[in-house]
Design a protein around this nucleic acid. Structure first.
Length: 590
DNA sequence: GCCGTTTTCGGCCCGACTGTTTTCAGTCG
């Protein structure tokens, strides 16, 4: 067993501050909880390491982080120096419960957790579930049978995602480990395999594959990484470790000539591999992680391309390997040419500090240009979202004028005016048509009434997209992975309506949204509905999600570049929206 | 505990809605 001293990551510091915030709230302290929560958010979304910042400049440097003052800077220093925060330990002793897990359940906050603990002794998710099943939550004031049922439903969603983490939260670490291994002289090639390579929306563990003639040295390097908290197993060609984020990471070392076969084998999915082996079997061949064999002789396995070709298949992109028709398409030579990473030219959903974003329009535009984008739409929240400082008609038009003033200073990137209008309970919008008609890009989305009946929700969404001014349906189902179920509408009916009205459906690339999800993207593509892949950025560091995660979801949904409207150059993109609005108006008049 | 073009005190994105009950916690971004 290895235990190494390492500086806490920003995420770990944020987690401690967030727990402190919740415990203070539970303790009835005023205002401090919000301050700690704000500081946690700021630290979590910071690009640079806070631990390094402290090392370089101490609390004075920490104090300059927005939301962090003298007090919280002191707490962070305490954590970095000793691994503990005294006040946090004291509060944990007072309330010995898994508060972070409990408040992750939709409908449970600090106050509810306190009531559950003090009245029923509930300390963790298991005890909460037991209490809810026994019908004991309704004994607590202000809780009844309905809230009990809602909590059980929310627990089910949490349970389904237990032990899995969001793709977006592990991808950077996976790449870091990959490049660390790849930098070693004795490593010939390295790859991330498993569900990360397939870009599944949640990840259960990390799989690494290395080709090397010095496996022992690779093993040593792998288990000695600073992120490793525990070595679970270490043999000659295989190691398993526990990482600081709680996930397990596995490494296999393979001889060069088997790398392609092993990569295919460890990328999966299981169902895809079973189908490949059946094809091999039918040809009198044997397929395993070491290669494709006729009798004892290996006939392919050095690369995946060689392996698939030997089986009579086109190379199947990892994102499609779910045994969902890709084998048949590859046999027939009819795999689609998927939208490529790096092919987005625009980003159509950005929130600035005009509503709940943290950056100015100019900062967002410059950051987008840095990423190589040619245009962005500023789509701040609107009237109904009071907490997000939603804009009314007047502010939206002021912002449009502001964008026009800024544009000459922003060379190399076109900024479009827009809005993320709220779809109300009945499908009406919270901004008038006259104003919407003046904006370049109008997205509409759901932010409330998540629990309507299927019929009501379907009618609501279709009514919204039938408005000729609505160009795009933003984050269509409003789900939050591992937290909130998607709004229950008839997806096929909404896709059919989008095809009829020329409405674009969005793939919102925020790590916990990924909405539309892969299967629904595929339905939309089949129906000929256009997609937009957007970051939903609230700060510059979010912009990269569009390419990193959004394009991945589109690829998993079999989308080509021609299906994605923001792969178009800005003039063609705008012509496309204008054309759709024109036809929608004609239809509305008819 | 943080913050300041109302700057060293006194505010704290602060409205509608749900579920549960007569005063409030939680949710929406």
């Amino acid at each position: 067993m290895t235990a190494r001293k390492r500086a806490p990551s920003n995420a770990e510091i944020a987690r401690a501050l967030r727990e402190l915030s919740l415990l203070l709230e539970m303790d009835g302290v005023q205002f401090k909880p919000r301050a700690y929560e704000k500081a946690a958010l700021a630290i979590e979304s910071r690009a640079g390491s806070v631990a390094e910042l402290d090392e370089a400049g101490g609390w004075r440097a920490l104090d300059r982080v927005p939301g962090v003052g003298k007090g919280i800077a002191g707490k962070i220093e305490e954590l970095l120096a000793s691994g503990h925060i005294g006040e946090l330990d004291e509060l944990r002793a007072k309330y010995p419960i898994d508060l972070l897990a409990l408040t992750d359940v939709e409908g449970v906050g600090a106050k509810a957790a306190k009531a559950f603990y003090e009245s029923l002794g509930v300390r963790n998710l298991e005890e909460l579930e037991a209490a809810a099943r026994a019908g004991r939550l309704r004994e607590i004031p202000r809780f009844g049978a309905k809230s009990e049922a809602k909590i059980l439903q929310a627990l089910e969603i949490v349970r389904q995602s237990r032990g899995r983490v969001l793709l977006g939260s592990v991808l950077p670490l996976a790449r870091e480990i990959e490049s660390r291994l790849g930098a070693a002289k004795f490593v010939d090639s390295v790859a991330v395999a498993g569900s990360i390579r397939r870009r599944k929306e949640t990840i259960g563990d990390l799989d690494f594959l290395v080709a090397s003639s010095a496996p022992a040295r690779v093993m040593e390097l792998f288990v000695a990484q600073p992120d490793v908290t525990q070595v679970l197993a270490q043999g000659e060609t295989k190691a398993m470790v526990r990482l600081a984020n709680g996930l397990q990471a596995d490494l296999r070392v393979i001889p060069k000539e088997s790398f392609g076969a092993a990569l295919a084998y460890f990328t999966g999915s299981k169902a895809h591999n079973v189908s490949l082996r059946k094809i091999a079997q039918a040809k009198g061949l044997k397929l395993n992680e070491y290669g494709l064999f006729r009798g004892e002789r290996a006939i392919a396995g050095r690369t995946e391309k060689e392996l698939y070709a030997a089986l009579g298949l086109e190379l199947v992109p990892p994102e499609l390997r779910e045994d969902a028709g890709e084998i048949e398409a590859a046999l027939a030579g009819e795999l689609p040419e998927l939208v490529a990473y790096g092919s987005l030219r625009g980003d159509l959903q950005l929130q600035s500090h005009w509503s709940d974003g943290t950056s100015s329009i100019e900062e967002l535009a410059r950051a987008a240009r840095e990423l190589g984008l040619e245009y962005v739409a500023i789509t701040d929240h609107t009237r109904d979202l009071v907490l997000a400082r939603g804009c009314d008609e007047k502010r939206l038009l002021e912002q449009k004028a502001e964008i026009a003033r800024l544009q000459p200073r922003l060379r190399g990137i076109r900024v479009l005016s827009g809005a993320e209008v709220n779809i109300r309970e009945d499908g009406s919008l919270d901004i008038d048509d006259e104003t919407l008609a003046q904006l370049d890009v109008v997205g509409a989305s759901i932010h409330s009434y998540f629990h309507q009946s299927r019929a009501d929700a379907t009618r609501r969404v279709i009514r919204a997209i039938e408005n000729p001014n609505v160009d795009i349906l933003f984050h269509p189902t409003a789900r939050s992975i591992g937290k909130r179920a998607p709004v229950d509408f008839d997806v096929d009916a909404v896709i059919a309506a989008a095809a009829r009205t020329g409405t674009v459906l969005e793939i919102d690339a925020m790590p916990d949204r990924l909405d539309l999800r892969d299967q629904h993207v595929r339905k939309a593509v089949t129906a000929g509905v256009k997609l937009a892949i957007d970051s939903d950025a609230h700060q510059p560091s979010h912009l990269r999600f569009a390419d990193e995660l959004g394009v991945a979801v589109a690829r998993r949904g079999w989308a080509r570049a021609s299906d994605v409207i923001n792969t178009l150059p800005v003039a063609k993109f705008q012509a496309c929206l204008k054309d759709a609005r024109g036809r929608a108006r004609d239809r509305a008049r008819a």
